[in-house]
Design a binder for these strands. Structure first.
Lengths: 178, 178
DNA sequence: GACTAATTGACAGCATACTTACAATATGGA
DNA sequence: TCCATATTGTAAGTATGCTGTCAATTAGTC
């Protein structure tokens, strides 16, 4: 016998009466941390009224001027359908422009506007501050460890997500047609 | 001079041309991992047609029979407004019941139905499998480390989120009025 | 060169998240 | 007891995130 019968309920296992099945689950922790990360980001950047998703999209468009929506979604691993409305909002705020492609009539090329570039420069300190705050409670060494493990895990799990990150593929496609 | 001028661009820093500002940011990694975690959960549990949020809500209701929506939101750290529709969907699927409280006419008490309890029992293996898969790519020791750090970070950042986890508080309130 | 297959952006629909507002109800204090 | 305040559930509005579908267009193949 590897366990003492006295500390255990009878053999018929009744449902657990604690929330541990939820609180200790990786999925719950990831969801919770994502909630927290977004809250911190929005709070730090509220003066600029920009969401994390919109920020990532702007950075990607700045990095790849003239990219189209489909490739953009692959570069930041965001859902293509969702990205449509994100782009709409960024265009409505005049941070980006959508121009028809000369070669391909289906494609709309994305470019940062002057205003969008200025916003990115202005918001950078707030974004940095937000990223720092997210890990602040941990000891510096633990921050590095967590970041390394998360990077590793996200990379190794890339194909498991509905919208895998295709930074390289997308870039090649993009370069070929531009 | 602590840096070599040759390896640096001129003093006027022009915008970086890589996506590193996004890919290495903790916030991006948390978002990405959350996407992946949900995709894995949904895939493993697709036979039961239950989302991670609905699963957590069911477990909480089983753990605290007769809880009301506001306290439920505190126990699983989900937004109260969102929880309204989650509860609606669970009720529509007949997994839970909403009964008026005798003492407080504002409150609706939540209980698992027989069907809801059966579902929870049936789905447990799939949920476990999903949680395992999320961390699978890491070495066992790294899984433990990541889990410990995430638990720590989520706990220490609790107040930073819009809906802090209030498991104990909520329970005391709940016990007092039941 | 014509037909099929793939791609692109758009849309509809569902499910979280969060904000603000509101009506019904409770509660606490003057 | 009455009144200001707080709580509860709900709803409207915005923003992701995902599933489908669709028409227009392009690319690949025979």
């Amino acid at each position: 016998m590897t366990r003492t019968a006295v500390t255990k309920t009878p053999v018929t296992r009744d449902p657990p009466i604690t929330m541990d099945a939820v609180y200790t689950a990786p999925g719950y922790l990831f969801r919770r941390m994502q909630q927290i990360a977004v809250a911190i980001f929005v709070e730090e950047c509220k003066a600029h009224d920009l969401t994390p998703v919109q920020y990532a999209a702007l950075v990607a468009i700045r990095t790849h001027p003239g990219i189209d929506a489909t490739r953009l979604s692959a570069v930041i691993a965001f859902d293509r359908s969702t990205l449509g409305s994100v782009i709409e909002r960024l265009e409505a705020k005049a941070y980006i422009e959508r121009k028809p492609s000369a070669g391909d009539k289906r494609i709309k090329l994305l470019h940062l506007t002057r205003s969008g570039g200025a916003l990115l420069r202005d918001i950078m300190p707030s974004v940095e501050q937000a990223q720092v705050r997210m890990l602040q409670p941990l000891k510096p060494a633990d921050r590095k460890t967590l970041l390394a493990l998360m990077t590793q895990l996200v990379d190794l799990n890339n194909e498991a997500s509905r919208v895998p990150l295709r930074a390289e593929d997308a870039l090649e496609h993009f370069r070929k047609s531009s």
